[in-house]
Computed example of a mutant assay.
Amino acid sequence: MNIPHSKKSDQIARVLTMKIVRGEFRPGEKLGQDQIAREFGVSHVTVREALLHLSAQGLATSLPRRGMCVAPLDRNTVDELRLMRRALEPVALLQSVPKLTAAQISKAETVQAQCDAAETAFAWEEANRMFHMAIIAGCNMPRLTEEINNLQLLHARHFFAKYADRWKPRSEPDHHAIIAAIHDRDAPRADAILRRHLTRLS
Score class of each variant (00 low, 15 high):
Thr61Cys: 09
Phe159Pro: 05
Lys168Asn: 10
Asp184Tyr: 10
Leu73Gln: 06
Leu63His: 07
Asn128Gly: 03
Ala127Pro: 01
Ala71Phe: 09
Val97Tyr: 05
Pro169Phe: 03
Ala187Gly: 09
Val78Ile: 14
Ala60Arg: 01
Val70Pro: 12
Ser96Thr: 12
Trp167Glu: 01
Arg185Val: 07
Thr61Ile: 11
Ala156Phe: 03
His132Arg: 14
Ile148Trp: 02
Leu154Phe: 01
Ala180Arg: 15
Ser171His: 13
Ile179Leu: 15
Pro98Ser: 09
Arg82Met: 15
Ala180Gly: 11
Leu93Asp: 10
Pro90Gly: 14
Ala56Lys: 14
Cys115Asp: 06
Arg86His: 13
Pro169Asp: 00
Gln57Ala: 06
His132Met: 07
Ala92Ile: 12
Thr120Tyr: 06
Arg66Ile: 11
Leu93Ser: 10
Leu54Ile: 02
Pro142Phe: 01
Leu88Arg: 08
Ala87Leu: 12
Pro98Ala: 08
Glu119Asn: 09
Leu81Gln: 13
Lys99Asp: 09
Glu89Ser: 12
Arg129Gly: 09
Ser62Arg: 15
Arg189Cys: 05
Lys168Ala: 04
Leu151Lys: 04
Pro188His: 04
Ala87His: 10
Thr145Glu: 15
Pro188Tyr: 07
Ile182Ser: 08
Met84His: 11
Pro64Trp: 05
Ala164Thr: 03
Gln114Ile: 03
Ala60Asp: 03
Leu154Lys: 05
Glu147Leu: 08
Val97Asn: 08
Pro173Gln: 06
Ala92Arg: 13
Arg65Leu: 09
Asp79Trp: 11
Leu151Gly: 02
Leu63Cys: 06
Gly138Glu: 01
Val97Asp: 07
Ile136Pro: 08
Glu109Ser: 07
Leu73Val: 03
Pro64Gln: 07
Leu88Pro: 04
Ile105Leu: 15
Leu63Ala: 08
Lys168Met: 04
Pro64Asn: 07
Leu93Thr: 12
His175Trp: 01
Asp74Thr: 02
His53Gln: 13
Lys107Tyr: 15
Ile135Phe: 01
Val91Ser: 13
Phe160Ala: 01
Leu94Glu: 13
Asn140Pro: 01
His175Pro: 03
Phe159Lys: 07
Thr61Ser: 07
Asp165Glu: 00
His158Arg: 00
Glu109Asp: 06
Gln114Asn: 14
Leu153Met: 09
Glu146His: 02
Pro173Asn: 10
Ala121Ser: 08
Asp74Asn: 11
Pro173Gly: 07
Glu125Ser: 15
Leu81Ser: 07
Arg170Met: 11
Asn140Ala: 14
Pro142Tyr: 00
Leu54Gln: 02
Ser55Asp: 08
Val111Tyr: 05
Gln152Leu: 07
Gln104Cys: 11
Trp124Thr: 00
Ile136Asn: 10
Ser171Val: 10
